[in-house]
Computed example of a mutant assay.
Amino acid sequence: MIRILSMPAFAASLLISAIAGGTARAEDEPKKASAAQAQAFDTTLVGSTAGKVKTFACFIRRYDADHLAAHPKQTVSAMKLLVTVDMPSTEQTYNHEFRLGVKFRHRKGDFQSAGSCNHAIVKDAGDEVRLSCPIDCEGGGIEIGIAASRRPQDKAAAMVRLEAVRIWDNDSKAEEETADYLKAGADDKAFRLERTSLKDCGSLVSDDDERIAMLGK
């Protein structure tokens, strides 16, 4: 038997469904991390408490032949990530920027990407705190998270996740002529990068003043 709702009841049911749907969509959206969560994230990311001067963190991964053989669809052979944390003079929240270096297994050249990040967000999956780092003009972007430790004594590693991010040839002065995209294929969606010395990310910094601030020379 088919139940026929009166017009008021039908309208009410539509309203309830719309509210429920809106609530579900709102719950699916990431929420801004609290001040305590953001501070803990920054401390773990840079390995120390972020202060009033620019702080840097470098992460890197070079995939060996065994790994690449086990992941034949992975196009990335090496990746490095430089994250900077800096407090602006007029606000009490930290600014984040990233520079990404990429090498490909079947393509010559050193490629990079760069951009600014939004404030830290909390993802539904395990309440993970991440930085969302979009690139202007439909350049895609990346998300930066803290990788789960494999062993208690491990230093924090970074997780880089992406759908698509604009990259360009680091050796070319004409970025617009070499712009391309690193897209998330079957094995190019998430990358675990290990913390390393800041000097390993020196190639991602072209500004002399910033290089001095990072490396002291």
Rank of each mutant, 00 (worst) to 15 (best):
K189Q: 13
A114K: 08
G22H: 10
A9K: 02
G216I: 04
A190Y: 11
T75N: 11
W168V: 04
V160C: 03
E143Y: 14
I4G: 03
D127G: 10
A9D: 03
Q39T: 15
V53T: 13
L5F: 15
V122D: 03
A35P: 03
Q153K: 06
S172D: 14
A65V: 10
T49N: 11
S34M: 01
G109I: 03
E143G: 10
S116Y: 14
S116G: 13
D64M: 07
A179N: 13
E97K: 08
F59K: 00
G141V: 03
K80Y: 03
D28E: 14
F104V: 00
D171Y: 04
K123R: 14
D187K: 04
D154I: 02
A36I: 12
R3Q: 08
N95P: 07
C137P: 00
P30G: 05
E29Y: 12
A147R: 02
I121W: 12
D209F: 11
A70M: 06
I60D: 14
V160H: 03
R62E: 13
M214P: 00
S197V: 04
M214G: 01
E175F: 12
F56W: 06
E128M: 05
N95A: 14
V83S: 01
D136R: 10
G185L: 08
K183I: 13
K123D: 15
A213C: 00
S203H: 00
I16V: 15
L182G: 00
S89G: 05
V85C: 04
E91A: 14
R61A: 09
A120Y: 03
I121L: 15
G21D: 02
L182D: 03
A35T: 10
P88Q: 05
